[in-house]
Design a binder for these strands. Structure first.
Length: 423
RNA sequence: GGAGAGAUGGCUGAGUGGCCGAAAGCGAGCGCCUGCUAAGCGCUUGUACGCCCUAAAAGGUGUACCGCGGGUUCGAAUCCCGCUCUCUCCGCCA
């Protein structure tokens, strides 16, 4: 959510920034609601003030056994008026809030203007693409041939976009997860979290999934709960409605979780393989920082995610999302794209974002300055470190051999009982 | 699933209709005192929103907030209703 005072004072600037994202915002409606709210607020507060004063007077009169029936009657009318105004005020605030809640974040000044993912500038490229003396296979063929991925049975058990892992496949997924958690906790200074895999409406609203993107979520019937689409939701909401001490910042958390996405509107896209599933595993890094250091933290966070691919020796490139491709809550996002030889394409494997105070404002996440004691919104960041299923894809495709077997990356072998080749 | 108890400021804990944004203690901050440390003394110590002032802060002022949402009343932390969460006991269960 944007700062309402900032919005008031920068109407045109925000309008243009939203247009760059491809969003038309009706600023007239905002101004009307905002003005109406303040007008009613002022009127009702004057009346409340009067009621407070006179009620005190009534109390004193009664104590002195004086007659107060006349002013009691008058205050009855004032109270009735307050009640009416309160109802209008409540409605206006709801409308205003609903309006603000669906306005995306303002892109950071360093974010380039663009109209699609084609316009995302490449920031850096790492690694040598493997050269094969045979035609590399896509991971779904590799996985099925080795009997480590079973798409047909996943679909039988549940439905499309669900996969059954077997044997070395299941072990590989688990090994990658543990390797990444160990790297981030032991080398990069993150505290491991194991969060709930369902979250309530307030949490979903805090991080920005709701109210706008309800159709992307799985809702659990007869409850207020949603399956989390990413560990970002429960982990960022750890500090919802809290005031932290500045000395405790920055805070680094890392969490493994399964992620559940309805993938509405992606019919026909990536229908084969592990790339786009309704359920997948992810290791997520989440940071809380002071505003002045959040962009340094974003660079470090992105480097932490890249380090996973470097250690796995998988080629990748990092792009900066342009205005049109930027997520709803994000001010700036780097996507890390791993090279997939089977598809001859770079595919997203991590997304690292700085939300600035956008989520903090929605979720009332604040901190108190050591110097001066002022309370301010903090900045939240997160990034995949990495998407586990897609890392399995990258390993299978980059480490495949002519005979259909797959070499296990060296850093994963300790996590797989020393296994060197999946055959 | 059944029965009961509870939810107050950073923490502990008073408060059963007006004198309560809220006692007291602890903690924290500032100052005084003491050769250092400790003790002692004094003061300060929530958040949000609106308005005034300001370049912006600071400051002033008003309103709201005692788990959340309604209700009664001139007036609610306090009375009534609903909900959520926590704890205890019973049942069930990994």
């Amino acid at each position: 959510m944007l700062d309402i005072k900032y919005l008031r004072q920068n109407l045109e600037h925000v309008r243009i920034k939203m247009l760059e994202r491809g969003q038309e915002i009706d600023m007239g409606r905002f101004t009307a609601l905002d003005t109406q709210r303040r007008d009613i607020l002022q009127e009702v507060e004057v009346l409340r003030s009067e009621r407070n004063a006179v009620s005190k007077e009534i109390g004193e009169k009664k104590k002195r056994k004086e007659d107060a029936t006349e002013i009691i009657a008058r205050m009855g009318e004032v109270s009735a008026r307050i009640k009416t105004l309160d109802e209008t005020l409540k409605q206006t605030e709801e409308d205003l809030n609903a309006f603000l809640m669906v306005i995306p974040n303002v892109p950071h000044e360093s974010v380039e203007y663009g109209t699609s993912s084609e316009d995302n500038p490449v920031i850096r490229t790492w690694g040598e693409k493997p050269v094969f003396d045979f035609t590399p296979k896509p991971h779904w063929d590799i996985g099925e041939d080795l009997k480590i991925l079973d798409f047909a049975r996943g679909a039988k058990i549940t439905g499309a976009r669900f996969t059954l892992y077997r044997g070395a496949g299941a072990l590989l997924e688990r090994a990658i997860t543990n390797f990444m958690l160990d790297l981030h906790t032991r080398q990069h200074g993150y505290l491991e979290i194991l969060p709930p895999f369902m979250a309530n409406r307030d949490s979903m609203t805090g991080t920005g999934q709701l109210p706008k993107f309800e159709e992307d979520l799985f809702h659990v019937e007869k409850t207020d709960y949603y399956l989390i689409p990413t560990a970002e939701v429960p982990v960022t909401n750890i500090h919802r409605d809290e005031i932290l001490e500045e000395k405790d910042l920055p805070i680094y958390y890392v969490a493994y979780s399964p992620c559940f996405r309805a993938e509405a509107g992606s019919y026909g896209k990536d229908t084969r393989g592990l790339i786009r599933q309704h359920q997948f595993n992810k290791v997520e890094m989440v940071k809380f920082s002071q505003p002045e250091t959040s962009y340094d933290e974003l660079e470090k966070l992105t480097a932490n995610a890249e380090e996973v691919l470097k250690r796995l020796k998988i080629p990748f490139r990092t792009v900066s999302l342009c205005t049109a491709d930027l997520g709803f809550s994000s001010a700036k996002t780097y996507d890390i794209e791993a090279w997939l030889p089977g598809q001859e394409a770079y595919r997203e494997i991590s997304s690292c974002s700085n939300f600035e105070d956008f989520q903090a404002r929605r979720g009332a996440m604040r901190f108190r300055r050591t110097d001066g004691g002022r309370v301010e919104f903090l900045h939240t960041l997160n990034g995949s470190g990495l998407a586990v299923g897609r890392t399995v894809v990258a390993v299978l495709e980059n480490y495949q051999q002519a005979d259909g077997t797959v070499v296990v990356p060296e850093v994963l072998r300790p996590y797989m009982g020393g296994l060197e080749i999946i055959r």
